[in-house]
Design a protein around this nucleic acid. Sequence first.
DNA 1: TTCATATGAGACGTTTTTGTCTCACCGGGG
DNA 2: CCCCGGTGAGACAAAAACGTCTCATATGAA
Lengths: 182, 182
Amino acid sequence: MSVDRDQVLRAAAALLSRKSTATMDEVARAAGIGRATLHRHFAGREALVRALEERGIQEIEAALDAARLDDGTAEEALRRLIAGVEPAAGLLSFLVTENQLFEGEVNEGWSRLDARVSALFRRGQERGEFRFDLTPAWLTEALYGLVGSCAWAVQDGRVAGKDFQYMIVELLLGGARRSVEK
Amino acid sequence: MSVDRDQVLRAAAALLSRKSTATMDEVARAAGIGRATLHRHFAGREALVRALEERGIQEIEAALDAARLDDGTAEEALRRLIAGVEPAAGLLSFLVTENQLFEGEVNEGWSRLDARVSALFRRGQERGEFRFDLTPAWLTEALYGLVGSCAWAVQDGRVAGKDFQYMIVELLLGGARRSVEK
DNA sequence: TTCATATGAGACGTTTTTGTCTCACCGGGG
DNA sequence: CCCCGGTGAGACAAAAACGTCTCATATGAA
């Protein structure tokens, strides 16, 4: 009988990341509940987006923790991170696009995530694993972009779901060029 | 005195690709014109988006033509393409995100672009330049995602504008991993 | 200068979306 | 059995955005 708040947020993220102009009514129907009930759980659109952000940042941060970014090689850590981020790919792409929405103040939690991911790439550079000519900031952005793109591509059937991690990891690490095996 | 339609479309794309919920008034101010003038040039929001799509597809198609995708190595062609696409990066990222909220029919012009880019990657594979384990469809999506991410990173100052082409090309072709020179 | 044209600002009515409310209903616990 | 908390549907007003209009102004050409 009672609404599953988690399931509502998930449905909202899935819809809003694809169509950010969706009305509250559309969000409610996508979550399979009435508009009145949606308003009972989230004061308004603003509150819904905030809850989405909070939850997204929370999940990504958990993925960062679970990936143990400081253990082993940076490449291994990156593979663990991408694997751990997959379930939250929808929320991540929502965060990436929506993060630009708030002019002025940048979400504090988001910049914290940013810093941790950048640190991973910097560690890889310092270990001699990653190239120096691609900045950690750019690699971080590229990671977000690729995760978002791949999530969309999977959703649209252009990429097989089981290849999600592989496609991202291989492109991000090795690139498209065929190179001599080392 | 007269409004530069091109500049308006560019500003609109830059804003709408980041904030698709932007008001017509916000779009107008982003373009540095009044709301009334915006309505004089584009009948409404729908017409504006249509014009944005049309112009975006037109510019990307022109870039594809200019890049001579069938000449020389696929890598050279890809470099030419990325260089030629840079001025239209804002429009491209708008197209990519807008195309995600497909409601029914997919834009015909867009799928034509898609096919041409995919063909380039397929040619690279057949020439032995590109890896076979990364599908042309995924490489195409990844290219779009990286262009959009980089355009956005440049706009926010996280990546230097002069590095736009280099960052995309190098990551897409060679990846982040430091590898033995071939 | 004079005139035609295009613009910005803003007023306005309309439409869409939002947020709140009421009410009937449904299902589990007393 | 009867409550009772949570829900869906819909009504309703307020708010926001849209689209159109007028008017004063500025720019460039004749």
